[in-house]
Structure formats: structure tokens, C-alpha cells
Design a protein around this nucleic acid. Sequence first.
DNA 1: GACGCTTGTTGACACTCTGCCAATAGCCGA
DNA 2: TCGGCTATTGGCAGAGTGTCAACAAGCGTC
Lengths: 193, 193
Amino acid sequence: MTAARLRLAPSERRQQILEAAQTLYATRPYDEVSTAELAQAAGVTRGLINHYFGDKRELFLAAMRASVLMPEQALPGLDGKPLEERARLTMSWILDAATTYGEAWVNASGAANLHGSSDIQAVVDEADDRAARLVLDALGLPDDAELRARLRPAASLTKSVCREWLQHGTFTRDEALNLLTATVLLFVTKETS
Amino acid sequence: MTAARLRLAPSERRQQILEAAQTLYATRPYDEVSTAELAQAAGVTRGLINHYFGDKRELFLAAMRASVLMPEQALPGLDGKPLEERARLTMSWILDAATTYGEAWVNASGAANLHGSSDIQAVVDEADDRAARLVLDALGLPDDAELRARLRPAASLTKSVCREWLQHGTFTRDEALNLLTATVLLFVTKETS
DNA sequence: GACGCTTGTTGACACTCTGCCAATAGCCGA
DNA sequence: TCGGCTATTGGCAGAGTGTCAACAAGCGTC
């Protein structure tokens, strides 16, 4: 019954555990999933979790980090188009990504530091920052620190809007798109002297 | 050494435990705080926690619920003023609340359902909905379901902006105020047919 | 093809934490 | 002053977590 002991490359095994954790944590809270269950899902013994991640919490954070980052795919070519159209196409692409890509990203809009510790918040912050860079790039704007600082909150807003749309049904896709496009344009162009 | 056993009214003791939990969870993550520590901070035995809240997680949720809700104070009189001014004053009031009232509310903008379970997300959602109602009231607009659905994400945005301003220093107060005012006005007036 | 070394992997041990419940003892009313 | 209601306690049983010495899979070497 017990599967024969198999010896893998560290990076491979690490990945294996990480993916199992992502799956489990996608539907159940941190403290409800035991390391025993985590280990079983990954097909290893509990000891390995500590060996590769040190800590249960550490594994949790790694899983979140992996789940929360948006896919780093290239956007469709937007060269030469006016800013407004680029903005609309970009937000449309993000909405599509939100539907197909998964719930984890959308769900990252609630209460990180509610935890008390800032490590989870840091994970979300990093993801938002990356999303902000992605949008700036798509809009053909310079990767400016100030612009990024404005677009990071926009990421938070976007996730929240997606939740309204996908989970509560209080928005149509079009409404969401209109609202987000207008907001992003506002954030990027507004003078705040 | 052991304090004499004191018998309190249930509501009082409940409150006592709740406040201790809020304090502890304000700076440390859920799983790092044991029920023993929670109990000690409240000056009671572990048993009472289960007696009043059933569960460690239940106490945690109650503490979050209490920390995350904005103060339900009345806003300064805004009658008769034009919408734009009302919006600006309202957002200004919220920014003040964010500084003086505490970190918990601002920090509620990261990764609730990152937890996996939706109960924490529900707590944050409720808080956002309440904030949305508060803003609608301040703006003198009807408490419309559609308008509320638009302002809930705005709450998420606001928290995120406040974090940029207060914790990262990437915004000045004025910049934050300008951005938020413009956004709220956009959300409330825009047609999305 | 057999041996031995490196190191990925295991299993058990010690400890802490959680939820439960019967026993205890404040406080109020008679 | 006494009795009863119930808030509060303390200890028990079970589960979960991190550690570590022992084990063995796979590779290089002879």
C-alpha cells in the first residue's frame, strides 16, 4: 500500500509540495488544513514539509505567493493606439484573466494584515506592484515610481470589482469594464499638484 | 498571586475577552497567538474562551468584526452644499478617521479569502458595505443597491490608498484626497449603460 | 556489476495547543 | 442566613507541530 520510496531532485519535490498546498489552501483556511493532510496530498511525509519550507506558515506564504501573482503573459499588441483604447483593452484583458485564471487572485482583496503580521500583506503588495507595472507597460507609460504608487491601489480596486461581478453578480462585465477603464484613465492622467 | 475569582455579567466578560483579543491580534498573526495567551491577556482561563465564543476561530472573527468596522459617527453637516464639495469633505473625514482611528481598518485590504474560507471575507464585505452606506448618506444620495455595489469597491480602494499614504509614504494627504474625491464622484455619477 | 558515499526521505519522540466537561464557588433573591 | 442559579475553573483526552537520528535511493567509482 505504501508507495515505494522515491528520491527526487529538491526543486522538483519542492514544487510538488507547493502545488498540493495551493490546491488545499484554495478552498480551506490556514488553520483547518493540517500538515499531515498537506503532506498526504503531496504524497510525502510530514517531515519533508519542514525540511523544505521550515514551517507550516512558511509553506502557506509560499503557496500564497505562487497563487496571487498574475500571469506574466504578454498583452496583445497595442502599439500606436490612443491611450483610451489601450486602457480599455488592457482592462478587458485583465477581466478575462480574472475569469479564466482563477479565484486566488480575485480573492486577494480582503484582509491580509488583518492577520496581524505583515508578511501576508507583503505578498499581496508585491502582486499588486507587479500588476501595476504590467498595466503601465500595456499603456505605454514610463515605469515611474509615482505612477506605480497610484496604480497599486487600482489593483486592489480591480480585484474588488471583479468580486462584485463574479461572485455577487452586482455588476455586468460591461459595467465593470467601463468603471475600471475610466478609473485607470483618471489615475494615470490626473494632476494632483 | 492568583487573582480572586470574580463573577461578571456575561456581556461584560465577553467584552473583556474580545478587547484583549483585538489587542493581541492587532500585532500578531492568528496562529501565533495561543488560546492560553488570549486567556491570560483577558485575565481568565482558557475554558471561558470556548464558553463564550465556542472556538478560537470564532473569537478571531469576532475580534476582526469589531476592529474593522468604521466608527458610525455622524458626519459634519453637509446640507445644501454641492455634490463635489460634499464628496471632498466626506473623503477628508474618512482620511482623518484613518489616521486617528487606527490601523485595523486600513489594513483590511489584503487577502481575506486568501485564507481559503469565506468567513473573513464576509467580515470585510460587511464593513465595506457599511462604509458605502455611510458615504451615500453623506453625499445625500439614495441608498440604492446599485450605487452601493459601486461604492463597496471604492472602500477597498480607499483603504489601499490610505496604506500608500500612511505606511509607504508614497502619497501626500492632499494627493490621496484629490484622487479619492475624483474617484468617488466618478463612481457615483458615471453612466454605465 | 558490486560497492560505498552522498543526501533525499522517513518515522517516532517530545512538546504544545485545542476543545470538552464535571466540579467549584461567586452572587442574588428569599 | 441560606439555597440555588450559573459564571468560572482545572484537568483530561486527543490532535497537531517541529526535531532529529536513522534509513535507503541513486549516482559515481573501481
